[in-house]
């Protein structure tokens, strides 16, 4: 555990972005998430850690209502984004997902050109008035995802032709292009090699300036490296939530301590 250096990164923002109150999730008869309460801050990286099957990905998918696409999934409790309940009947899940972007475990570029991949969101949401503005959004998003230098000469080539790490950064650029307020990342580095992982982690740290980032990860080192806040899930419960440095150096719950020292998981 020597490489688990916890960077002394103060949480410099205390604005509440997302608040979850007593959230329960059921898959059919399975009780996947049990009464979770969590408060996610703006312009902060929050990491969800925990053993496989503990419900961290399920909870993440509740935050932009991606679970709506699964028939048997039922969510109860309140999730507030900027003090508005996202499960309220008057909220359009499609609009919500434009505000709460998502990056998935496996890079999933569309079978289109790099340019069209990034321009996909802005086009369907009508974020640009003309081609020049769209070009600008694409360039800005690719720059923000640290992919511009590698991709600028091949914007018309298919996104599926990039390497795995580049594909994942393309997916991040694609999510950034719609101008979200929150970026959800579901194990974004689990399919990447160490170099690509380092690039994406660096990127996450930069994205913190503009967005609230929530990242699910299996790697405790990664959570320690990129996040300011950490939540530990176990068997569908939120066991402990606090500053990353506190969770990793001075866990309050014995289960958290067991997990980060490698005894459960």
């Amino acid at each position: 555990m020597n490489d688990m250096r916890v960077l002394e990164r103060a949480v410099d923002n205390q604005d509440l972005k997302i608040a979850a109150r007593d959230v329960d999730v059921y898959y059919g008869t399975t009780h996947a998430i049990k009464s979770v309460n969590v408060e996610i801050l703006d312009k902060t990286v929050t990491a969800f850690i925990g053993p496989s099957g503990c419900g961290k990905s399920t909870f993440l998918r509740c935050l932009n209502r991606m679970n709506d696409t699964i028939d048997i999934c039922r969510v109860t409790g309140d999730i507030l984004l900027d003090n508005e309940d996202i499960y309220d009947a008057k909220v359009d899940p499609v609009q919500l997902r434009a505000k709460v972007g998502m990056v998935f475990q496996k890079p999933n570029p569309f079978p289109k050109s790099i340019y069209d991949n990034v321009a996909y969101g802005p086009r369907i949401h009508g974020l640009s008035r003309n081609k020049a503005e769209l070009d600008e959004i694409v360039e800005k998003s690719l720059r923000r995802a640290a992919l511009w230098d590698e991709a600028k000469d091949r914007l018309d080539q298919p996104g599926t032709g990039l390497s795995g790490g580049q594909q994942q950064r393309l997916c991040i650029a694609r999510a950034v292009a719609t101008g979200p307020e929150v970026l959800l990342m579901d194990e974004p580095c689990s399919a990447l090699d160490p170099i690509a992982t380092a690039q994406v982690e660096e990127l996450i740290d930069e994205l913190r300036e503009r967005f609230s980032v929530v990242i699910v990860t299996h790697s405790m080192q990664q959570a320690a490296r990129v996040s300011q806040k950490t939540a530990f899930f176990h068997l569908g419960e939120l066991v402990e939530y606090g500053d990353t440095s506190q969770i990793f150096t001075n866990p309050q719950d014995s289960r958290t301590e067991s997990y980060i020292t490698g005894r459960i998981g």
């Binding site: 696409t69 919500l96 999933n108 569309f110 369907i124 719609t178």
Partner: peptide, 23 residues
């Protein structure tokens, strides 16, 4: 994963079908 990617960007079903799935 392609459907998830498109829904995750705030696309509707028919937009996803027309722009991602059919191509």
């Amino acid at each position: 994963s392609l459907r998830d990617g498109s829904y995750g960007l705030g696309a509707t079903k028919s937009e996803t079908v027309k722009q991602v799935i059919l191509p």
